[in-house]
Design a binder for these strands. Structure first.
Length: 97
DNA sequence: CACGTTACGGTTGAG
DNA sequence: GACTCAACCGTAACG
C-alpha cells in the first residue's frame, strides 16, 4: 500500500541472486517482471533464456508460468489473511478473474 | 544443457 | 495497537 508496486524495491531484505538480479525474500516480483516472463514464454522464448534475461531463477519462471497456465492470470495468489472460508473463496475468485 | 519440483527462509494480512 | 496463524512469495538446490 504505502510502497508503489513498481521500481521502489524494499531496501530491508533486498538482495542479489546468482543471476545478478535484485529480489526481496518473501515478497513477489513486480507486476511488470511477471508480465515479461509470460510474454516471452508465449513468444517462444525458452524458460532458461527468460530466467537469464529477466535475472530471475528458473524455478520462479517455471512456477509463475505454471500458475499462469492454470489460473490464466499473472498475479500472485492471496498471501496472508486469515483462513476464513468466505475470505478464501472471495479472494480465490477475484484472483481468477 | 534444459526443465520441474522440492526444500528453505521469509513476508504478508485478516481476525 | 500488537499478536497469531496459515498461505504464498522467490531463491537455491536436487534430480
Amino acid at each position: 500500500m504505502a510502497q508503489d508496486q513498481s521500481i521502489v524495491f524494499d531496501r530491508r531484505q533486498a538482495g542479489v541472486n546468482q543471476l545478478g538480479g535484485v529480489f526481496v525474500n518473501g515478497r513477489p516480483l513486480p507486476e511488470y517482471v511477471r508480465r515479461r516472463i509470460v510474454e516471452l514464454a508465449l513468444l517462444g522464448v525458452r524458460p532458461c533464456d527468460i530466467s537469464r534475461r529477466l535475472l530471475v531463477s528458473h524455478g520462479c519462471v517455471s512456477k509463475i508460468l505454471t500458475r499462469f497456465y492454470e489460473t490464466g492470470s499473472i498475479r500472485p495468489g492471496s498471501i496472508g489473511g486469515s483462513k476464513t472460508k468466505v475470505s478464501i473463496i472471495n479472494l480465490a475468485n477475484a484472483r481468477i478473474n
